[in-house]
Amino acid sequence: MIGIFKSMYITFATMLRTPVTIEYPAKHRDVPQRDRAFPILLWDKEVDEPFCTGCHACERACPVECMTVTMKDNPLHADEKSTRRKIVDEFWIDYGRCMRCNICVEVCNFEAIAMNNTWAGHELSKFDRNDLVLDLQQLLSQHKQDKIDAWVAE
């Protein structure tokens, strides 16, 4: 009988505590800086072009093969505005396949790819699976519009 009273004591003591839960869709908790949602591409504001040169390093390293990259000659390099000889032409990431392992970020030599660390990266519900395949413009838009303070480990 003592044991049951002890259990009831804990239950009543907990009843008086402040709640620890957050009413999710109405309120959002802060995500940490290192939060890993899905990969995005970064935009070089000084030269006004993506950091990515389309070197295929991430595509080769991806364990789930969710990326497709193609490369082209950089038109800005011909005008001597940019030091990048090659630049990314097309870039697709299938968020439906991505398993968020961060390996693409680690293998990138140009710090051109980072994990989305905002809530926008998590709330991706779509009615059609194909909408989860993002192209180059969609991948760049977040950083281009200064919506992301990307974190990449040294």
């Binding site: 940490p32 290192r34 939060d35 890993r36 398993m99 968020r100 392992c101 961060n102 390996i103 680690e106 994990m115 660390n117 480990a153 040294e154």
Partner: peptide
Amino acid sequence: EEVTGDRLMYAYFRPGGLAWDVP
């Protein structure tokens, strides 16, 4: 989550050490 960036699938250890240092 603060350390690794993910809540369930951490992928934080690497052969040889860790992916990055703790905060």
